[in-house]
Write a protein that binds this DNA or RNA. Structure first.
Lengths: 301, 301
DNA sequence: CGTCTTAATTCCGGAAACGAGATCTTTTCA
DNA sequence: TGAAAAGATCTCGTTTCCGGAATTAAGACG
């Protein structure tokens, strides 16, 4: 029994899907399948019942889920307990709007419980600006979106800034175009029947990915909005397509079913300066890693 | 952080020696060294202080020790909890005298706490007889000593019986010749200055290994005794050399320091019939595996 | 004070495990 | 009924892991 298998198990259990879980933990589906099978063979019990393409926990799987959560929590606690000096002081964290909404709440709650002496300063912003702030020491670290490598050339200064920083993938988001309800399904930007694209600030990587995608076939204007709620409201008017990751869309239980189109996976990176990590940073880093692939809702523990 | 690394860590912590720990968990010392170093790097803290050739836990190592024990216990509990039907009924276990004395108490205590519905029947005997009893279904499983392969030819029927059974190494014993205090240290059987060898029954593998060793240079008679206490008492008379594993010798805090000579490592195997495992057997097997390499004294939990 | 022994570490080659992609099968949805 | 999607299976290249040999360092003993 391996802790990494348990992490994978938790992801599958909370997504009820091998494919989703694979994305969540940053692996390939075939790998997830085999690790689950190994775990089942090791425990000599079947954890999931595969009826059709749904993965639902068996009764044994349910009881194991409880232990799996406790095991991961205990491992994290052990990790933190051996840290020679308890972190304290201030940690300045930059984050994208979307990450703050969907993935951070669970991690931040846990972090606060573990290290009440650290005061966390959260700054929201676009990936570009955040990266620059980390470089200039206005922030200790930031969660930003990795620009697809096809976009690297068109913004070489951003690319250079990233190279000067240490980085590590922590989440994978499924970036979506959200269409008004009733809009016919689309294959490319040419099929869009809206007047504009709704997104956040210009420095936002998600926005730039979407604009890049739209530019190939049509010339839509982008209307800039301040929040994802505003974007959704704008989509509801019928004449706008919104840009946001699936995790954010899932979060706001929107009354109507919306039509979506996938722009593909986008990694969220934790970036920080080399050789300059406040003691609280390592603790934050570990809590984030442990949150990887977990359900957005807090683990019941 | 890997559960097998933690198992290795526990062994090193309780033996304060990588060589001993390597034997206890059935690995090679270099491997143990590497795994400990990996663990230390992963946790970014040093767990042991290497002053000279002693491995002593650092303060951080001490705190990690607590978590390591809890982690292993929780993993074992998880394993048992998913077992679809709680084992019950009877499990007939055969064991060598020595294993019953040194290794089993901790495991049996834990097993009883976990599965009070199983009534364990313990039978003591020599490896040969135990193997035969498992084959004939007089026992469900047994803990026996693996005869060195150089001895395989001279007792081919025992060898054939073992081949018919499933087997798995669970402990490694350090087999000793125990000499009377004051006896000069020896390099081979030729240096013995005693009148006889004290051991258990003829079917006992340890006895046969020792007789094999003694035969090469001298022709000592073997005096048969009923227990390890009797053997030690006999050694104390000054005219006998005893045969027993180190774990047993360590157990009886004998007043005088005794001179010993190593006959080498001997594996203890758990043997059982293929395709015939009572539900309680799997549970017993798992508890035994978890006990592997742990300190003889019960883990403080 | 040197030599001998024992223990830990380092180094290296073979073996096993692992992860990614391609392919196959089955389910579901249009 | 056909197309799309998801899970399982297979293969292959890579990484990791383990065991043995060589190396280094620390005590033991004369």
């Amino acid at each position: 029994m391996d802790l990494s298998s348990i992490e994978i198990f938790l992801a599958v259990a909370s997504d009820r899907s091998v494919t989703k879980a694979a994305k969540a933990v940053g692996r390939v589906p075939s790998n997830v399948t085999t690790r689950i099978q190994q775990l089942e063979e090791d425990l000599d019990v079947s954890l999931f019942s595969r009826d059709g393409k749904k993965m639902t926990l068996t009764r044994e799987g349910e009881t194991f889920l409880g232990y799996a959560n406790r095991l991961m929590a205990l491992a994290l606690e052990a990790r933190q307990a051996v840290r020679p000096l308890a972190p304290s002081g201030t940690l300045r964290v930059g984050t994208m709007e979307s990450t703050a909404a969907s993935r951070l709440p669970a991690a931040l709650t846990q972090f606060n419980q573990m290290w009440p002496d650290v005061s966390l300063h959260l700054t929201m912003g676009a990936s570009r600006d955040l990266a620059r702030d980390v470089l200039s020491d206005a922030l200790d670290c930031a969660l930003i979106a990795r620009p697809p490598k096809t976009m690297g050339e068109e913004d070489s200064s951003f690319d250079a800034e990233l190279k000067a920083l240490e980085m590590e993938p922590v989440f994978v988001e499924d970036l979506l175009i959200v269409l008004p309800s009733g809009h016919p399904s689309i294959k490319s930007a040419a099929d869009l029947r809206v007047g504009s694209l709704a997104a956040l600030e210009p420095g936002c990587t998600y926005r730039r990915i979407a604009e890049n995608w739209a530019r190939k076939s049509s010339a839509l204007p982008t209307s800039e909005l301040g929040s994802y709620h505003a974007i959704l409201a704008s989509v509801a008017t019928g004449n706008t397509a919104g840009v946001m990751p699936r995790s954010v869309l899932d979060l706001m239980h929107w009354p109507m079913p919306v039509q979506t189109h996938q722009l593909g996976p986008v990694e969220t990176l934790l970036v920080y300066r080399r050789n300059d990590r406040p003691s609280a940073f390592n603790a934050f880093h570990e809590v984030l890693s442990a949150t990887k692939g977990r359900d957005i809702r807090l683990a019941t523990n």
